[in-house]
Amino acid sequence: MMMLFDMIVYDLSAEYEAALIITLLCIIISFWAVMREREDLHRLILTELVEIMCLVIIALVATDLAEALILPGLVVGIAEFLALSELYIEKEGLRKAPENVLHIEVMDSAPGIIAVIFVIYGIILSGFTGGAVAGLGLLFYFMCRGSSEKREIIETVSGYAWACWVVAFIVFMAVPQYWFFGVIIAGAGIFAKVVAKMSLIGTMNGDGGEGDV
């Protein structure tokens, strides 16, 4: 029965090196740009370019392990990115809230529906990716509706989710026979964790002004 399926097993030796060298060339280009760039915000944008190049190198390995490594790489990127952008605002003293440049009609009508779609798909996906997708939906919602008082709740949720995750890890390491329990806790925990973090960004949109004014 298995013989009937057309199985693809990668033979990467031929293409890996060429692909890697092209990627390294791209990296040289992006680092060249970083080297030439003097302005702080442009540098921040360029770091995203560098992150993408970083993910390409990992993606080229092309095993399941590589894919599992891309996810942490992504998260590290976004986390540092957010922290740095806050730092930038702090250091430049950009206290004045912007007039809502992104205010278009869709933002008033769409958020509910889109958020629901994203969240449902995210729940079906669950786990890490699902968290990101559902979080995206909530982010969009909060960003359009502007909500600030829920932040404490979201923070608490994310704290518990993290604890869940650690518990699941301990289950895997200490009592591996309950692996099933571990999978479910971990899936739920990491989902809640990522959702919470993503939607926090959404609540941060208003930032210091419009909610209170």
Partner: peptide
Amino acid sequence: VLVRVIERREA
């Protein structure tokens, strides 16, 4: 996140 920072900078 980037657009948000840029908005603030423009403002």
